[in-house]
């Protein structure tokens, strides 16, 4: 079994901020727009280094998305920054018409996704954003799992032509993927070899999936663990290869089970290789105030929830 080490807890949003800083230095067409959350999105350094390329739009997300679309016309690569809730639901029609349908090269970068936003509560904890974004034709949807991967993804999407939704979070979480990794959009990362069950996780749940695999291993169950950082386009091949081997799957995500990664995986399997599946996700509910750990536990979004789901799905094989 491969060993993964947490090199020190870090927030994924800092991965975005540091990635943006690096991009600012190497790509003069990269511009950043922020709706009054520069500190929360860790965009301060980009702003300091390139004040002429940083656009503070105020608390006006709809205008921010429209402006970003307009900037692409002059050859700029705009990165918009605000919370996931205000990056998606609040501006859905602006993204739909001015960005997705218009085919504009806008990078919508969304922090504080999911319940791990914590104490601010349900008004800010969006659990529907992956669904909203993946339904838009032409939209690439990425949900990174740790600091290193978020930084690499931020840098990678600048070189990709087309609209991208990049989702990350607020809490400090394990940083375990390689530094300066080669981030390939649409390519799953195979983290653990196993033959009894496939665990497909995205975002903060990837580390939990690795912890679950260790626990399962101690009990004689070997799990194939796959990190799906790109929910759309989905790496169908990697999913099918694994499930053909294991015969069942657990999907894990910090998102509603409606519209999330789990449903995308279910579509692939139901049409090409039907297999039992269990969903570790929120169950069509809003979140609430609490610490990230308390919320992950209450809403069944941690390693122990994954272990339970694995036992259930193996019994259904």
């Amino acid at each position: 079994m491969k060993k993964y080490t947490d090199t020190g807890k870090k927030d994924t949003r800092s991965g975005f901020g540091d990635g943006l800083t690096e991009l600012g230095k190497k790509n003069k067409n990269v511009v950043a727009l922020c709706a009054d959350l520069t500190g929360s999105l860790k965009m301060d350094e980009f702003k300091e280094n390139h004040p002429e390329r940083f656009f503070q739009v105020g608390i006006a997300e709809a205008n921010m998305i429209g402006m970003a679309a307009g900037m692409t016309i002059g050859g700029k690569i705009p990165f918009t920054g605000t919370f996931a809730n205000f990056s998606t639901g609040r501006v859905y029609d602006q993204i739909r018409q001015s960005v997705a349908y218009s085919g504009k090269n806008v990078k919508i970068c969304a922090s504080h996704a999911g319940v791990t936003l914590g104490e601010d509560g349900a008004t800010h904890q969006i659990l529907e954003d992956i669904g909203l974004m993946k339904m838009l034709p032409g939209m690439t949807v990425i949900n990174t799992c740790d600091y290193n991967q978020t930084k690499a993804a931020t840098i990678a999407i600048a070189d990709f032509e087309g609209p991208v939704y990049l989702r990350f979070g607020r809490p400090k979480v394990a940083n375990f993927t390689p530094e300066n990794q080669n981030f390939q959009i649409g390519k799953a990362v195979h983290l653990q070899e196993g033959s009894d069950v496939t665990i497909i996780a995205t975002g903060h749940l990837v580390w939990e999936a690795l912890q679950a695999a260790e626990t399962l291993n101690e009990n004689g169950i070997t799990a194939d663990v796959i990190n799906i950082h790109t929910i759309k386009p989905l790496d169908d091949e990697a999913i099918l290869r694994s499930v053909k081997k294991t015969g069942c799957v657990v999907t894990a995500e910090e998102h509603n089970f409606l519209g999330g990664l789990g449903e995308s995986v279910a579509r692939v399997l139901s049409t090409q290789h039907p297999a039992p599946q269990e969903f570790v996700a929120t169950q069509d509910t809003f979140g609430e105030s609490g610490t990230p750990e308390q919320l992950m536990d209450k809403y069944g979004l941690n390693a122990s929830a994954i272990v339970n789901a694995v036992q259930k799905v193996i019994a259904r094989k």
Binding site: A62, A68, G70
Partner: peptide, 14 residues
Amino acid sequence: GQGISVAIGAAQAK
């Protein structure tokens, strides 16, 4: 309601 925002973005790019 979206055109002025887009125009502003294009103007800033100019």
